[in-house]
Amino acid sequence: MSPVTIRTIQPADNPALAIIIRNALAEFGANKPGTVYYDATTDALYELFRQPGSIYYVAELDGVLIGGAGIFPSPGLPDGTCELVKMYLAAAARGKGIGKLLIDKALAFAGEAGYRNVYIETMPELRKAMSVYEKFGFKYLDGPMGNTGHFGCDIWMLKEL
């Protein structure tokens, strides 16, 4: 396998990323209201991640986008807390350690940006992702933090940096 390139998002990445995200949610039956499947920002990730305190990394293999993950200062989160967001991989890219590369890079940015905690919202349909987050030291919470608007997510996790 060729080496995977991890880089920051560019405007031309928007359409391919929107497809990867929506395909992954549909594949796992998680394409429901209150998720990023229906979120307009899913089609404009480059623009969304211009916000200070945020970053979005994409993974590329042989010039083809295969996934991404971001850090975002979601509304209503406590000071010093950001959210790991839009962590999705194309089906062919899973199980190869690419998600780990993206999460490592995102968590490193969060620490360098001065965040002390990283929050995640997910759903039972994405069990595989939950086990990955557990390996990174994310702990389950009893309820949501902040105001993400993703009422379709009913699993919440937090990691101290």
Score class of each variant (00 low, 15 high):
112 E>D: 11
122 T>E: 00
64 V>M: 08
55 I>F: 00
90 A>F: 06
58 V>K: 00
100 K>D: 12
6 I>V: 11
107 L>K: 01
14 N>R: 03
34 G>C: 10
117 N>W: 05
119 Y>H: 06
130 M>F: 02
86 K>S: 09
142 D>E: 13
44 A>V: 14
10 Q>K: 07
122 T>I: 05
79 D>M: 11
89 L>A: 11
88 Y>I: 06
121 E>I: 03
66 I>M: 04
30 A>H: 10
64 V>Q: 15
141 L>C: 03
56 Y>P: 03
83 E>K: 00
16 A>E: 14
155 I>Y: 04
84 L>S: 04
156 W>H: 13
5 T>S: 05
19 I>N: 10
152 G>I: 10
152 G>V: 08
62 D>C: 02
121 E>R: 01
86 K>I: 14
57 Y>F: 15
156 W>A: 04
148 T>W: 03
141 L>G: 09
64 V>H: 12
9 I>F: 01
89 L>E: 08
8 T>C: 08
128 K>P: 04
57 Y>A: 04
82 C>A: 15
92 A>M: 09
80 G>Y: 01
33 P>N: 12
47 E>P: 00
37 Y>R: 12
155 I>F: 03
20 I>A: 11
141 L>P: 09
118 V>W: 02
107 L>T: 09
9 I>S: 05
134 E>M: 01
51 Q>I: 11
26 A>L: 14
25 L>P: 03
79 D>S: 09
23 N>E: 15
25 L>E: 15
37 Y>H: 15
97 G>P: 04
84 L>Q: 01
144 P>T: 12
74 S>L: 01
141 L>F: 11
60 E>A: 08
99 G>D: 04
15 P>C: 06
